[in-house]
């Protein structure tokens, strides 16, 4: 005998995750256009590592392998990590990061649904702390790059760390605007001068602003499909914009604008794809607002006053820690109960 309800009207987990992947595609296309096809290699590496490591872990944990692999959640983690890493990162960095994400942050905690921290961000943070130099080596956007590496060149660089003859590392890599801003401000250069640098685009990072706009479009698609609710993206971007805007108003010479912060670094990716991870986030609407607004503000604080150029990963992890507390204190009013 079966049990009620006899009908289901759900969107299965696999479909939800698939739509998240689909929503990332415009961003990836833009990424290829802006930074070269190397990202595809990173994505493939991360995906294969994630699937294989998850399968092995499930086998070791004596859990059914097929349903867990087919839920697409491993791919989502892999793609998010890959997109957060600098393109042209060495192959082992991608593999190590993915292994930390899948094995330590996800499977050791009990697999999908049980991980308190966002696996992709755990992987990213571990790499950032362990390999700070490689993790901040970003390639020059193709729009302003003197030398453009072919796909084969990129492949060779990722796997063997060899560049074509006469190409120096400096020629293909450059500081990101967030990084550049931080260094130049420390050297007491004016904001106007700083913004003259070629890495700055029209309203964000050169090249990066197109990718970020594509993420925004993908995120709006997720909202339209009701895969994610509006709470987290709006509160995260709102929180970031609010704090950045206020400080920019007070002292525009030392604090960059809200627009700059929204269209640089991982803010947009974080708002629509990372902070919206349901497993490691809060469940109540009010909790989501608090959680995401805090991530937005923390991101700005780390970017502005912290040691790292971007702060989304640490902000997300810090707020993951607060999720049980947030959930416990934001329980909505139950029908027929007084506000308690």
């Amino acid at each position: 005998m079966s049990t009620p309800p006899y009908v289901l009207g759900n969107t299965p987990v696999g479909t939800i995750m698939f739509k998240v992947l689909l929503a990332l595609v415009p961003g990836i296309v833009a990424y290829v256009w802006a930074f070269g096809s190397g990202i595809l290699i990173t994505l493939a590496l991360a995906s294969v590592t994630a699937l294989v490591s998850e399968a092995i872990m499930l086998k070791l944990r004596r859990r059914p392998i097929k349903p867990s692999l087919s839920d697409n959640s491993a791919l989502v983690t892999a793609w998010l990590l890959a997109l957060a890493l600098p393109p042209l990162a060495p192959w082992w960095l991608v593999v190590v990061g993915t292994l930390i994400a899948m094995v330590v942050a996800k499977q050791l905690y009990g697999g999908l649904g049980y991980n308190p921290f966002n696996p992709a961000m755990v992987g990213y943070a571990a790499l950032l702390i362990s390999f700070p130099v490689i993790m901040t080596q970003w390639p020059t956007p193709l729009e302003i790059a003197q030398i453009k590496l072919s796909f084969a060149d990129q492949l060779a660089y990722i796997f063997n760390r060899v560049l074509p003859d006469a190409v120096q590392l400096d020629a293909i890599s450059t500081a990101t605007p967030l990084d550049y801003l931080k260094t130049e401000l420390r050297l007491e250069h004016t904001m106007a001068d700083i913004h003259q640098a070629p890495v700055f685009g029209v309203f964000g990072a050169k090249g990066g602003e197109i990718v970020i706009t594509a993420y925004l479009l993908g995120g709006l698609y997720l909202m339209q499909q009701r895969i994610i609710s509006w709470h987290i993206p709006v509160a995260l971007l709102g929180g970031l914009a609010a704090i950045a805007g206020v400080f920019h108003l007070i002292d525009p010479q030392h604090y960059d604008s809200a627009l700059f912060h929204l269209f640089n670094g991982a803010a947009m990716l974080g708002a629509f794809f990372i902070a919206t991870d349901p497993v490691s986030g809060p469940t109540t609407p009010k909790g989501k607002l608090i959680f995401a607004a805090s991530i937005g503000m923390l991101t700005w604080v780390i970017r502005t006053w912290g040691g790292y150029p971007d702060g989304v990963a640490f902000a997300v992890l810090l707020m993951n820690l607060c999720v049980p507390l947030i959930d416990a204190h934001t329980q909505p009013r139950v029908f027929g109960h007084d506000k308690s």
């Binding site: 079966s2 289901l8 759900n10 299965p12 987990v13 939800i16 349903p67 867990s68 839920d71 959640s73 697999g111 999908l112 649904g113 049980y114 349901p278 497993v279 986030g281 469940t283 109540t284």
Partner: peptide, 13 residues
């Protein structure tokens, strides 16, 4: 018949 139950992903749907 409903497909086998998976882990809760806390999606709050």
């Amino acid at each position: 018949a409903p497909p086998p139950a998976l882990a809760c992903i806390r999606c709050a749907r």
